[in-house]
Amino acid sequence: MTSSTPLLVRALKKSPWVFHVGTSGCNNCDIEIADCLTPRFDVERFGIKLVGSPRHADVMLITGPVSQACREPLQQAWLEMPRPRAAVMIGACACSMGAYKDAYSVAGPPDKVLLEVDPDAKYIYVPGCPPKPETIVMGVVKLLGAL
């Protein structure tokens, strides 16, 4: 975050574009993220928009523990994001591995995987299995407040 100017951060807070990465979760959190876009929660009214490429995104939403196969794609997607950038770890698995702590094919929780390539990575945790859409929206809002 050191390389970003205050102006960029302010611009990001007005309308954060988010990119969603499911890293081998059970897809429950992923569905709740998609739920945030639909009429009841409709995060687009706050300017939060789900985009299809990490190059367009300001905030990355990460769900699930990172499997061995997903590790490099996740790191690559993170490095493609322009600064200032931040991540939201959504769900128990992304926060602490949850039920999959002992699984042999899991490389680690996403925060550890991100820190491997970017020691300055900024992120927050939204626990829950899965967190309700309200909680996810609140998590993103709190992240923006903390930037």
Binding site: Q68, D102, Y104, A107, G108, P109, K112
Partner: peptide, 22 residues
């Protein structure tokens, strides 16, 4: 072969270069 009885998760993670605990 992960489903063989002699498969050991801790040793497997060590073999592929993972930290056993994080």
């Amino acid at each position: 072969f992960p489903l063989r009885r002699d498969f050991d998760v801790a040793r497997f993670k060590e073999d592929i270069g993972e930290q056993p605990d994080f």
